[in-house]
Each structure stands twice: as structure tokens, then as C-alpha cells.
């Protein structure tokens, strides 16, 4: 039984105290090939987001942005455990999920710039960045709204007997919304093939989790719905991957949902103009020292899955892809004004 006396905070959790409700089985039985995959996915998301930050600096990204910088290992670890035909449900902080799931980076960047070549033809932007054919059900501007949709997609997988699974990302903040309870319950009573991925970055915008959550982990809320859960280091792609593999296995064989709490941290503020001054320096320093890219790179080097040269070559190749995507996005045309009327309905209205 987990004590509920001590509330969560980014500082205590990052320290020696490792909170868990059935901790992830951190066995490191990951193949070298998979370590390279994890490194590549983590780095790809990082480079993509750095490019987005640059483009934003050049005033090319309209609207707001919720950068995924810092949380890359979560998207990388989860998607590396999925098949292409599996689904992910994203959030308002969704660039990383989409890129890690294998979406076309040209179309993703073009979307962020509001171009007609964007994956949503410029209709969605950062908060709705989506590529359906890559298995992304959608990114949403309403916190916690993705959970019921993920449950429904999982129900569809179950009813059609496809053996596909759905991974649903959401934040610590979303776990205080009613859809969290409604959706976890639905998934448990119907044994749906869904994996609930909590990206706990300890802040709902600027509100620290200690003010909004009485328990020591988000994961322990899953217990109330009889859903197996664990807490992992969300800055370590291997830990995220191993927990997800186990959950995917359970889901595919009809064992129902799992919940994985990935504890992580935003490198930047909540959105484009947030300097995040409400976060204590020691906490920020602690998490920056656990950088997601460095962590997976060090593991891959240590396990001899990669040489330093190979790591550099991968980085160079990915950087080129991202640069090309940015070129494509910048050069692409904006939509024509009359396109405002397109795609409201699929059928005649």
C-alpha cells in the first residue's frame, strides 16, 4: 500500500526516492538494434523541436507552441514498442508523439507554419498536429479530451479483432479531469487494448502538482480501476520502452489496459512566451542533468550498441532531414483564402 501522506513534487521525485506502484521491471534486456532505434527516435524529436524553436525565433510559426523539449524519451520509448499499425493519441504538446510515431517531418513542420502542404493543410497547427496514416489519432487543444477517444479506438481494435493497440499520452494535469476516471473505468471494464501514458512533468502550466494531487504518484490512481501501473524515469527511453513492451504484450493478448507514469520535465516553459520562472533552480538543474538524449546515448555507447562515430553520423543524418523539412515548410505556399470552407463535412451538406 502506497502512503498518500507526501504530495508529489519535481524535486523529491527526481532525487534518490523512487516512487513506484509496482516499479517497472528494469532488466535492460534490450537488443543493440533497439537501443539504436531508441537513440534515433529520441534525437529525432529533439532536433525537430530545436528546429521549431529556431523557426519560431524567426517569427515563422503563428500562434502558440507547446514544445516537447525535455520529454523526448517518453515519445521515443513508447513508439519504439509499437507497430506501425498501432495507434497513439496525442495531446496539446504533441509534436514529439507525431514525429516519433513516424509522421512525415516535411508535412509536420509545414503544418506548424500554417502551410497548405501541412499534414492538416494548415487547418490545425501545433495543437492539432496529426498524421492519421502514421497512426496518430489526433492532437487536441483540450486537456484530457484524448482519453475517451483513445478508449473508443481501442474498443474498435477489440471489436474488429485487429490485435492493434492504442497508446494514449496525457499529462499529470489531465489526470485531474473527469475524462481520466471515465476512460480508465471504461478501459478496465471492457479490457480494452490501451496503454495510458502519463507524462508527469510536475506542472500543469504553472501550477505545481503538489497543489493539485494528494497522492505520491499519478500511477496509484490506476489501482482504483484495477489497472496495473508503474512509475518509470521518463527521461530514460529504455525504461519507458521496457514498461511499454510489457503493457503492449498484455493488451495484445486481451489482458486489458495498463498505466505507465513517465516522470519527466519540460526544458522550456509551458508555451512560447513562458519563461517558467515559477520552477526552483535546483529542480531545473536536476532535470537538465538527466537530459533524455544524453541518457540514451550514454546507455547505447556503454552497451556498445553504437560507437561515438555512429552516434555522430546518425545525428548528422537526422539534422539534414530536419533541415530539409524546414526548407520544404518555409518554401511551401500558404492556403488560399477560399480553402477556409473545405473539409467541414465528408459528405454532402
Amino acid at each position: 500500500m502506497v502512503s498518500t501522506s507526501k504530495p508529489l513534487s519535481g524535486v523529491t521525485l527526481g532525487g534518490a526516492q523512487k516512487l513506484s506502484v509496482g516499479q517497472a521491471n528494469y532488466i535492460m534486456a534490450v537488443t543493440k538494434k533497439k537501443l539504436v532505434d531508441l537513440y534515433t527516435r529520441t534525437l529525432k524529436v529533439r532536433l525537430f523541436e530545436e528546429k521549431v524553436w529556431d523557426l519560431f525565433g524567426e517569427n515563422l510559426v503563428p500562434g502558440t507552441l507547446h514544445l516537447y523539449l525535455g520529454q523526448e524519451a517518453v515519445a521515443a520509448g513508447v513508439t519504439a514498442a509499437l507497430k506501425k499499425s498501432d495507434w497513439v493519441q496525442s495531446t496539446h504538446r504533441g509534436h514529439g508523439h507525431v514525429v516519433a510515431k513516424g509522421a512525415d517531418m516535411n508535412a509536420a513542420l509545414a503544418e506548424l507554419l500554417g502551410k497548405r502542404t501541412g499534414s492538416c493543410k494548415g487547418k490545425g497547427g501545433s495543437m492539432h498536429i496529426t498524421e492519421f496514416k502514421a497512426g496518430v489519432l489526433g492532437a487536441t487543444g483540450v486537456v484530457a479530451s484524448g482519453l475517451p477517444i483513445a478508449a473508443g479506438a481501442a474498443l474498435s481494435c477489440q471489436m474488429r479483432a485487429t490485435k492493434e493497440v492504442v497508446a494514449c499520452f496525457f499529462g499529470d494535469g489531465a489526470s485531474n479531469n473527469g475524462t481520466f476516471g471515465e476512460s480508465l473505468n471504461l478501459s478496465a471494464i471492457w479490457k480494452l487494448p490501451v496503454i495510458w501514458i502519463v507524462e508527469n512533468n510536475f506542472y500543469a502550466m504553472g501550477t505545481p502538482i503538489a497543489l493539485t494531487c494528494p497522492s505520491q504518484s499519478i500511477a496509484q490512481r490506476a489501482e482504483a480501476y484495477c489497472i496495473p501501473s508503474c512509475v518509470v524515469d521518463g527521461n530514460n527511453a529504455v525504461e519507458v520502452y521496457e514498461a511499454t513492451i510489457e503493457a503492449v504484450k498484455r493488451a495484445r493478448k486481451g489482458g486489458g489496459p495498463s498505466l505507465i507514469e513517465c516522470q519527466t520535465y519540460r526544458m522550456r516553459g509551458h508555451s512560447r512566451f513562458d519563461p517558467a520562472k515559477y520552477r526552483p533552480k535546483e529542480e531545473v538543474d536536476f532535470w537538465l542533468s538527466k537530459d533524455a538524449v544524453e541518457t540514451i546515448q550514454n546507455i547505447a555507447l556503454e552497451k556498445k550498441a553504437l560507437t561515438k562515430k555512429e552516434a555522430k553520423d546518425i545525428r548528422r543524418k537526422l539534422q539534414k532531414e530536419v533541415d530539409n523539412a524546414a526548407d520544404f515548410a518555409v518554401k511551401s505556399e500558404y492556403p488560399e483564402p477560399q480553402e477556409v470552407l473545405d473539409d467541414v463535412f465528408a459528405g454532402v451538406a
Binding site: L137, L147, I149, L155
Partner: peptide
Amino acid sequence: DRVRDTPISENAIAGAALGAAITGMIP
């Protein structure tokens, strides 16, 4: 299975129907 009683969870009923609709079912 095809005539499915749900909990009293209206937002999840609508949302789950939506999730099923975009992945190949007609709820």
C-alpha cells in the same frame, strides 16, 4: 458486444464512439 451498456459517463460515451468511428466502426 454490439448493443453495449455503458457506465454513466456521457463524455466517455461520446468520446469513445468518436474514437471507434475514426478507426473503422460505425457507432
